[in-house]
Amino acid sequence: MRFLLRRALFYLVTAWAAITINFMLPRMLPGDPVQAMIARFQGRLSTDAIASLYVLFGLDTESSMLSQYLTYWGNLFKGDLGLSFTYFPTPVSEVIAQSIPWTLALMGVTTVISFVLGTMIGVYAGWKRGSWIDALLPITTFFSAIPYFWLGLIAISVFAVSWGAFPAAGGYEPGLIPGFDWEFISSALYYSVLPALTVLISSIAGWILGMRNMMVTVSSEDYVTVAHAKGLPEKRVMLGYAARNAVLPSISGFALSLGFIVGGTLLVEMVFSYPGIGYVLFTGVNAKDYPLMQGIFLIITMAVLVANLLADVVYLMLDPRTRKAA
């Protein structure tokens, strides 16, 4: 348990740091976003909205930095992330609440599949080092070097534009009303095939390479030699002894690579106009909708932290050494 407590404490500190960075950014960087904003939304901003903008961006010169900081925290705890300008006057929290299930479903499922599949291929490639599988490594390298969004563009042009097998944009058949009925869900699944494959193909290479290298390293550990010496079936040695140990660093790596994968996945959503948080971020960026961008950054960070904590729990279950104090 001490292991988990330590990790949880670290995530709390990280969350605090992310929130504070978010608070500081508009106050530290040059430029006056609020004036630009007021100019753009001439007359359409209520005095309330303008006041909250000033609080958000720290141009509220009347109060001290500290009281601004406290107000900022107070608003956060109320779930108040300000008002979005693109979707004016919808609160940012509402915009995020509508889009985040899409992202969680798409990103969560594909990331887990990519990790599991990539790790399995990596186990095999590392175990059969020197065989024909090594010839696949340069190809995987090439795929891991392609930006996610560009692969998405290619996928759209091949499968959606030329072939027409899959839709090029959106999350479900236009005109359907989102709900838990088969028609909607099947449509959503159909629309998610291309973006999901894009994320899968771009991200799997990293897991394959990482796991292969760990397998190669672990294969020369004493306990693997002992397992061979015991005359165990090869499958048992590969999975129960080598892979079982090699996967541990991969899981702690999973947590750390998540931030990177999330970035790539957001871009895939943009390219596919998928109704998730990445697409919302894209519209926010184009409209210079700072409250929306900042809110999304916070939510993504929190989601990544939670995913990290989950990865830690898995690690804890797989490595008895961290369970010591339990």
């Binding site: 002992v226 397992a227 010496a229 129960g240 490595d319 008895p320």
Partner: peptide, 18 residues
């Protein structure tokens, strides 16, 4: 192991840690 068993050096690493 049926006919030849081995007691390895370095007891540290000879057992599967997990």
């Amino acid at each position: 192991w049926n006919d030849i068993a081995i007691v390895f050096q370095g007891a540290m690493n000879s057992l599967n840690p997990v």
